[in-house]
């Protein structure tokens, strides 16, 4: 990783927001009116990060962890309060137009296309902004729309599209000018599984074909697990883990949570069944009168589930990936912070 010059670099970056606090009650309001109290909120602290060209990095963290703030600092939307953010070797807050032409940003929660016109008209505007030549523009729109399966929706007003289609349009818009770095802030939030999958596939393909660097944030582990090579975990404004996803998956991510709901006539859970769990390396993490949750390694998941059917009268069963909170807890437990450095 270190042989490549980085395309993007953060050196002890911090971001502090100041928010005003207001007292409760009429008196508090009056007091606040005379002298405003400002409370500083540390959104990012001491972030060190370097990304090489062609990497596809997943930035994960709970809501409020600072993912969006980091993306905004990196794209020069807001200045960092301390430290230095560099993109293409320049201060991210003072990017030149030529630099800006090399990057792109997609925000899951905020549309960047025009709401009341068809997506294709927004793309024409982007074409002028990014000075893409006409032939290439037509080709890219057609090609990307086919890949994302929205060719027949290009002429429809954006507000009449479904959330998934809209997000796909945002992504087409972001990739029109062939950017070198693309930031995607929670692009799959609220989408159905099929759209999520299409978008992930698209990102992987573009990354492979054009060596586009992708920075993807999410609070959903599935996004990262299926798209990225490298994982950065953000927790309360700090980097908790930064490293190779493959290694991490082997240790933690490969765990599954299995939740079973039992019929009324099923045998209940009892302590003598512990032995049955050991065979699969599973642990019981939650027990309710008629619902049990186990954790088990991904590779033992299938035989374990079959065995559950032998043991109980199962009414319903759900398998989930390790939720993020568990993963973070696990990382804390094993003391494996910031692997990369």
């Amino acid at each position: 990783m270190s042989i490549h010059p980085s395309i993007l670099e953060c050196r002890s970056v911090g971001k502090v927001y100041s928010a005003q606090v207001r007292g409760a009650g009429t008196l508090g309001i009056l007091r606040g009116f005379v002298r405003r109290q400002v409370r500083e909120h540390v959104a990012l602290a001491n972030i060190d990060l370097a990304v090489a060209p062609g990497e596809i990095v997943g930035l994960i963290g709970a809501n409020g962890a600072g993912k969006t703030t980091l993306v905004k600092c990196l794209t020069g939307i807001i200045p960092a309060s301390s430290g230095r953010c560099e993109l293409f070797g320049h201060d991210a807050f003072a990017l030149t137009r030529a630099d800006k032409r090399r990057l792109s940003l997609v925000m899951g929660q905020r549309s960047q296309l025009w709401w009341d016109i068809p997506a294709i008209d927004s793309f024409r505007l982007l074409r002028e902004i990014y000075q893409v030549d006409a032939a290439r523009f037509e080709r890219r729109v057609r090609e990307q729309a086919e890949r994302l399966d929205v060719t027949d929706r290009l002429q429809v007003q954006l507000r009449q599209l479904s959330l998934g289609e809209r997000m796909k349009m945002e992504i087409i818009g972001a990739f029109l000018h062939d950017p070198e770095v693309v930031f995607l802030d929670e692009p799959t939030i609220g989408l159905d599984l099929l759209s999520q999958e299409t978008i992930r596939t698209f990102l992987r393909e573009v990354n492979r074909e054009r060596r586009t660097t992708v920075i993807l944030t999410s609070h959903d582990m599935a996004d990262i697990e299926e798209t990225c090579d490298r994982l950065v975990i953000l927790e309360a404004g700090r980097i908790l883990f930064d490293g190779d996803l493959v290694g991490l998956r082997r240790r933690f991510v490969g765990r599954r949570a299995v939740e079973v709901h039992l019929e009324a006539n099923s045998r209940p859970w009892s302590a003598e069944l512990d032995g049955e769990l050991e065979r699969f390396g599973a642990v019981l993490v939650r027990e309710a009168p008629r619902a049990l949750t186990f954790e088990v390694d991904a590779e033992h998941c299938q035989p374990f589930i079959q065995h559950l059917f032998d043991l109980f009268q199962v009414r319903d069963l759900a398998v989930e990936r390790q939720p993020l909170e568990n993963l973070i807890r696990e990382i804390f437990r094993t003391g494996e912070l910031v692997e990369a450095s």
Binding site: R22, T26, I29, G32, F33, R36
Partner: peptide
């Protein structure tokens, strides 16, 4: 009325 006052004075 008090609630409205609160809103109005949010930005000094």
């Amino acid at each position: 009325a008090a609630y409205e006052w609160r809103k109005a004075t949010a930005f000094r």
